[in-house]
Design a protein around this nucleic acid. Structure first.
Length: 558
DNA sequence: CTGGGGAGGGGGCCC
DNA sequence: AGGGCCCCCTCCCCA
């Protein structure tokens, strides 16, 4: 009888172990599967974006050929000429959501003088954050169009709440101000876009239009989306979307009287002086509200403008916001930002979303697009330090400290030789290529792949260094012990073994370490951090490797 | 736990 | 302008 009981208990233990093993295997497989899916989706998105950019380029070149004297906007995406301010390049706002437009879905636009098919590039909305948010849609004519015709694309929304539609008409004639031609296709006017140029200043006034809910009746074109969507990954446009009523001001420099409408949710004015070419995106607010918007607007403004025709270099970008939903980071929120930025990026993103929701402002944050954006080089100077702090803390907290030590750093972008700023973290670089390379940090782009394994790298020298793994090359040898290393840093680190140097000291005790990682691990002992728990016995460990060792011991014991 | 190495990420600088 | 290198840092793993 006792024997049977023992057998039963052993069987139970074995069964439990088997179940645990199966669970682990299933989890692992699921993780791999999910990774593969994510990878595929990412690749699809990348290919789609490339296709879209290609189409964009082709159609833009067509327009360029027809209007050689127009002002170009320097392409932020790999320096490719993006087109004309006077071209048929415009953005519209698409409600994001389950019924959203398909990418590249042609839509028909009634221009009054006929119907043409417009190629709509739907920029994916990163996420829905709450009411009022918008995603952007780039739209470009795919057929021969008369560039002087401004067109309006309408979008609508269903489900009661209608997201504003921004119709941005940048189609101006080179000679004169373009007629502020805004065609309200249907619904309530809630956004007005006006492009104006003259010989001295080019003023582009964007306003968001409020559309009627009847748009929702046409699901093919006007699709319901979740409100409060964050800006789109590929968007190179500035977007403010908030259906709340606000006042629209006129830009003093341009002298444009901007209509005020009850439904206007947001406005901003872009002024580009061909002489200095500042780009000022401005709405009314007090300075305390500026920072975030300044940053986001800066980042998503049309970027480098250069009067030479190659591109325009934006020398100044300032943005003011106005409205009843102040984009202010008050004391609490400032702490919040700091706290989140000190924790990690995902938390920070959460924080950002919350702020957006709470403030009822759809800001255009590059953070929403970190994963999916193509690298963008953006030139902006003088540098605005306010807007950078936030991202600096998030993305470069360590680097910043390091750079401070080195006398450089993210905030050094205001120097003349570092006027090319990362659109994600505002870090300054001396030339656009360096910005592009740097921005791979944010985009995750890894163009250099190893021929001998599947690994990919963002930089060529990293690939080269990696390939020593395959070649076994270890060019760095220790003069004391003949040990060899593939990296110079490894040798340097190793030599502390011989010198006895232990530069990392514990603040809690008197222990010293030769390696920073060892000190870090040691500190967990003081803190009592044991985040790794054994699923078998509940024992907790400060390091994953300890847990693994423990489990291996248990496993071998069984 | 501690010591130490492998390898990758990222910035700066030089040529 | 772009490649390459140096350097620092970090994570992970193993003894």
């Amino acid at each position: 009888m006792v024997f049977h009981t023992q057998i039963a208990s052993i069987m139970e233990v074995l069964a439990n172990a088997a179940v645990a093993e199966i669970c682990k295997l299933v989890d692992d497989d699921y993780a791999v599967f999910r990774l593969e899916i994510t990878q595929s989706q990412k690749e699809n998105r990348t290919l789609r974006r490339k296709l879209q950019l290609l189409e964009l380029k082709v159609s833009r070149e067509r327009v360029l050929a027809s209007r050689p004297n127009s002002v170009k906007i320097f392409d932020q995406y790999r320096g490719m000429a993006r087109g004309h301010l006077t071209g048929g390049h415009r953005s519209i706002v698409k409600p994001a959501g389950p019924n959203a437009w398909r990418d590249d879905q042609p839509i028909t636009v009634d221009e009054g003088n006929g119907t043409s098919t417009q190629h709509v590039i739907v920029i994916e909305s990163a996420e829905a954050a709450g009411p009022g948010g918008l995603s952007l849609v780039k739209q470009e004519s795919t057929e021969g169009e008369n560039p002087t015709h401004s067109r309006d694309i309408q979008t609508g929304a269903a489900a009661g709440v209608v997201p504003p539609v921004a119709v941005e008409d940048l189609a101006t004639t080179p000679q004169h101000r373009t007629r502020p031609s805004i065609t309200e296709v249907s619904g309530t006017l809630n956004a007005v876009l006006k492009s104006e140029t003259d010989t001295e200043t080019l003023t582009v006034t964007h306003r968001l239009l409020h559309t009627g809910s009847d748009h929702g009746s046409d699901p093919e074109r006007l699709l319901l989306g979740r409100l409060g969507c964050s800006p789109a990954p590929d968007s190179k446009y500035l977007l403010y979307g908030n259906p709340s009523p606000r006042t629209v001001h006129s830009h003093q420099d341009s002298g444009d009287a901007v209509e005020t409408g009850n439904d206007l949710s947001r406005s901003y004015t872009t002024v580009m002086d061909p002489g200095i070419m500042p780009l000022v995106l401005e709405t009314q607010t007090d300075l305390s509200r500026v920072d975030w918007n300044k940053y986001s607007s800066s980042v998503y403004s049309e970027g480098s403008l250069d009067k030479k025709g190659e591109g325009l270099v934006v020398d100044e970008v300032t943005v003011k916001m106005e409205g009843d939903a102040p984009l202010t980071c008050n004391a609490d929120e400032t702490h919040l930002w700091e706290r989140y930025s000190q924790s990690n990026t995902s938390d920070f993103l959460d924080c950002r979303d919350r702020l957006e929701t709470n403030l009822n402002v759809a800001t255009h944050s590059p953070l929403h697009t970190v994963r999916d954006r193509d690298p963008v080089s953006l030139s902006m100077a003088p540098y605005d330090s306010h807007g950078s702090i936030f991202f600096d803390q998030v993305f470069n907290s360590d680097d910043r400290a390091r750079d401070e030590v080195r006398g450089g750093g993210a905030t050094s972008g205001n120097s003349k030789d570092k006027r090319f700023l990362c659109m994600f973290c505002n870090k300054g670089f001396s030339c656009p290529q360096k910005v592009e390379i740097h921005q791979r940090v944010h985009t995750g782009e890894n163009p250099f792949s190893c021929t001998q394994c599947e690994k990919r790298f963002s930089r060529q020298d990293h690939l080269k260094r990696h390939q020593r793994v395959h070649t076994g090359e270890k060019p760095f040898s220790c003069p004391q012990c003949e040990k060899r290393f593939s990296q110079a840093g490894d040798l340097k680190r190793h030599q502390r073994v011989h010198t006895g140097e232990k530069p990392f000291s514990c603040t809690q005790c008197h222990m010293r370490f030769a390696l920073a990682g060892n000190l870090k691990m040691h500190l967990k002992v003081h803190k009592g951090e044991r985040p790794f728990t054994s699923m078998h016995c509940g024992k907790r460990f400060s390091e994953r490797s300890y847990l693994r060792t423990h489990q291996q011991k248990k496993h071998s014991a069984v």
